[in-house]
Design a protein around this nucleic acid. Sequence first.
DNA 1: CCCTGATTCGC
DNA 2: GCGAATCAGG
Length: 187
Amino acid sequence: MSWTDERVELLKKMWGEGQSASQIAKELGGVTRNAVIGKVHRLGLSNRATTSTKTETKAKAAPKADTKPKPTPKPAEPAAKAAPEPAAPKPLPARKQIIPAGQPLPPQPSANEISPEALAKVSAIEKKAKRLTLMELTERTCKWPVGDPATDDFWFCGLTVQQGKPYCEAHVGVAFQPMSSRRDRRR
DNA sequence: CCCTGATTCGC
DNA sequence: GCGAATCAGG
């Protein structure tokens, strides 16, 4: 595949929209994200603010006149922090009356110990859970168990895990509570 | 580990 | 000019 005008245009468009190189590559097809990035550089349209400590080439770099200062269409993020404190109802779906002959229930942390925010997040995320079975779990699926193992309605979250962790973001939130916050967390 | 972009350098 | 390999940050 070569860089036809169309492809370059799509590249520019997507890059402008903030799409990642890999996404663009996927869209274009026939190229890898490296190819895309390489092209992006050659085209000159690179800067997109990265956490790069920028290899500051000293004061060497010539300022160069910017004919077209980029608009930087950052709509801003309101991020309405709705911190609901609705006495977080236990998300647990009606426990079967019969306690399975079994082992203590899984890590299901009791609601009354976890930060409200985290809990809210979980109950919210659980609606989106993929509800995977044990066999469907992979290294990239959240392994947070939900429900009762001895029941039909037992499944694993299955959402994409947070890098490194065994759980998705929401579940990582309730799984790894810094001791400090749970101890003496009454304000 | 996965993902991102940045750079280098042989082709 | 191209892009795989490699680097570096998250």
